[in-house]
């Protein structure tokens, strides 16, 4: 943002505008917040993905009186429907994590492509693409998801598409912003002079030089995607009827909070730790790729 960006264009020796990923990753790995974040992410991913295999009961199996804390054979009691809280918890993270990862991946592919094309072509196409992105930012993500769900219903593919599409403009803007100064540099001119094809210039010349900021953005977007998909579950729009879902669990069990808190507390803490984990990693990466151990805010 300030005038500290290196402006000398010496392709070989100076590091690119944002440090290349190996350097960023190494610097980030030295920060305690990145290690804690990674630990949280791995832990929660293990619970979400491996949980169904170790759950003592089925996803929707009746085990005892509803909303009771000490039911024989259960560790955390039963939920509003007499199902085992622990089993529901172990089953309930998978769809959130998988859908959030898929939608972030989709947004990355689309957003990076749009951002790179806009940065490389400039002019009319750049204006058109970025204006379109600006317009689509004028809509809260959760709202658009709700409008789409109204007609088609909470299908997994629809959630991935909507969250992916609404995340795309955010990634496209970051990519374009990071790629514009790279386009001006000599090695891009050299590649053009050598007659390299346009896609090749985008993917092998530009992309590696914007991967620092992209890594940060990908983590940040994963955090928000998890939040949105969990919020949809909380609002009652999870993908299958009576499926275990951390967001939905919070909603189902909060009425009985004072007698049986586990049904609400376990999933709420799981979502909290998962998003804090990815948030910490994003923050560490942004500090590392800014080259200083200091956050510059989310922009």
């Amino acid at each position: 943002m300030t005038a500290t960006t290196p402006t000398s264009t010496d392709p070989g020796s100076t590091p690119p505008v944002a440090a290349a990923p190996p350097g960023v990753l190494r610097t980030a790995w030295r920060m305690w917040r990145v290690r804690i974040g990674l630990l949280l992410l791995l832990l929660l991913a293990a619970v979400a993905l491996g949980g169904p295999f170790v759950a003592p009961y089925g996803e929707a199996e009746f085990v005892g009186t509803p909303n009771t804390r000490d039911v024989e054979g259960t560790r955390f009691g039963t939920d509003y429907f007499g199902q085992d809280v622990l089993s529901r918890f172990l089953f309930g993270g998978r769809s959130i994590l998988v859908l959030a990862t898929l939608s972030t991946a989709m947004a990355l592919v689309l957003g990076v492509t749009i951002g790179l094309v806009a940065a490389y072509n400039r002019g009319r196409l750049d204006d058109l693409l970025m204006r379109t992105m600006d317009v689509s930012l004028a809509f809260p993500q959760l709202l658009l998801a709700l409008v789409a769900l109204t007609t088609i219903g909470p299908k997994p593919w629809l959630i991935v598409l909507i969250v992916g599409f609404t995340t795309t403009p955010r990634i496209a803007r970051i990519t374009r912003g990071a790629a514009v100064p790279v386009v001006e540099r000599d090695f891009v001119g050299a590649a053009e002079a050598l007659g390299e094809s346009r896609p090749r210039i985008l993917w092998s010349e530009l992309l590696p030089n914007v991967s620092g900021p992209l890594l940060v953005e990908a983590n940040l977007r994963l955090t928000y995607s998890i939040g949105i998909i969990a919020s949809l579950g909380f609002l009652g729009f999870s993908t299958r009827v009576n499926a275990a879902d951390w967001g939905l669990m919070v909603n189902e069990n909060r009425a009985a909070l004072s007698v049986q808190p586990w049904g609400t507390v376990l999933p709420a803490i799981a979502i909290a730790l998962l998003t804090i984990g990815t948030g910490l990693i994003a923050d560490g990466l942004s500090r590392a790729s800014a080259g200083i151990d200091r956050a510059k805010g989310d922009q």
Partner: peptide
């Protein structure tokens, strides 16, 4: 950083546990 990462309903649910019920 921690608060910004969590979805609103999780913050609210944990506040309810802390200040309104348990």
């Amino acid at each position: 950083l921690i608060l910004a990462a969590m979805p609103e309903f999780v913050v609210g649910a944990l506040l309810t546990v802390l200040l309104a019920t348990n």
